[in-house]
């Protein structure tokens, strides 16, 4: 009377892989997309730009995924995993785009290694080669910390991706269009929790204000301009983050006003000789994060996963 057992196992060996979500057929994340670099665009700059945006997503996703099985309730566990998955998807596309635009950026692996280019970029670069903002990499704290970090991050990234939809680079325009839908949810979720913690208990408000004070110095880096961003913005490929500043400030001020939390009065975190995350100068936290993220991949440079 349990013939229905069979159906679950049919297809485990051979069979039609199309019925499975993660069959072996899906290999190239940019399959079917026109990856030609538009005329007149500097390949190295485009690759560097894709790495900046891709690394922001990748490192943020890695930190968010550390929350898995640790959130205050199952609903939040699921939401944080969703957001991490969205950003991971963006990272994969952007890293693949970087590699396609300028193969020189891809770290060399042993001859014949089957590791795809986007994985080589994620798992075989050192901290100094990552171009993410420092906000993404700082170690996790409590739930208020992840809410503040996500709010600051998503408000900026959404404003950026909204503009990036008009990029003359087809791949970036596609990634941005998909990302806008995702980031709209991320920002909404973070803002709702920001209001909840601000208006919840004394303890939740105290923790929220502490986290905001701790993370606020990292915020200006999100709307600072790197020369590559400026150059690509002029070419119609990228977006100068400085152009999002007024919108970002306006939205944050709205959230602060609604929650009765004062905008922190703290100066930006210094770089070193003017160099910050975008230039590959990071906090101590990044190399620790990469040590974990890269350990298995690096142990098997010719591995097939």
């Amino acid at each position: 009377m349990n013939d229905d057992h069979g159906s679950v196992f049919d297809g485990l060996i051979g069979g039609d892989s199309a019925q499975w979500a993660f069959g072996t057929d899906f290999e190239d994340p940019l399959a079917g997309v026109d990856t030609t670099v538009p005329d007149g665009v500097d390949h190295a700059e485009l690759a560097a730009y894709c790495l900046m945006l891709g690394d922001d997503a990748l490192i943020m996703s890695q930190r968010l995924s550390e929350w898995c099985s640790r959130a205050p309730d199952l609903e939040e566990d699921i939401a944080l995993a969703n957001i991490a998955l969205d950003l991971l998807g963006q990272a994969r596309l952007l890293l693949a785009r970087a590699a396609a635009a300028d193969p020189v950026v891809v770290p060399a692996l042993p001859e014949g290694s089957p590791v795809p280019a986007e994985d080589a970029l994620a798992f075989f670069r050192d901290a100094g080669q990552f171009g993410n903002v420092r906000l993404a990499e700082v170690a996790n704290g409590d739930f208020a910390h992840v809410i503040v970090r996500l709010l600051l991050f998503s408000v900026s990234r959404l404003a950026l991706l909204e503009r990036l939809r008009a990029s003359i680079d087809t791949v970036l325009a596609h990634v941005a269009a998909k990302g806008v839908k995702e980031l709209t949810y991320h920002r909404d979720w973070a803002a709702r929790w920001f209001l909840t913690l601000a208006g919840g208990t004394e303890e939740s408000r105290r923790r929220l204000v502490t986290a905001l004070g701790d993370l606020w110095p990292y915020q200006p880096e999100l709307v600072a301009t790197h020369p590559v961003e400026l150059s690509l913005a002029r070419a119609g490929v990228g977006v100068d983050p400085a152009t999002t500043r007024a919108e970002v400030d306006g939205i944050l001020d709205q959230v602060f006003a609604m929650s009765g939390v004062a905008r922190p009065d703290r100066p930006p975190l210094e770089g070193e000789g003017g160099r910050t995350g975008r230039h590959g100068t990071h906090t101590e936290a990044l190399s620790g994060l990469l040590a974990e993220m890269q350990v298995v991949a690096r142990a098997h440079p010719s591995g097939r996963w």
Partner: peptide, 10 residues
């Protein structure tokens, strides 16, 4: 956190 490819991590 240690998944060896972006696809496997997802």
């Amino acid at each position: 956190g240690r998944a060896p490819s972006l696809r496997r991590k997802a």
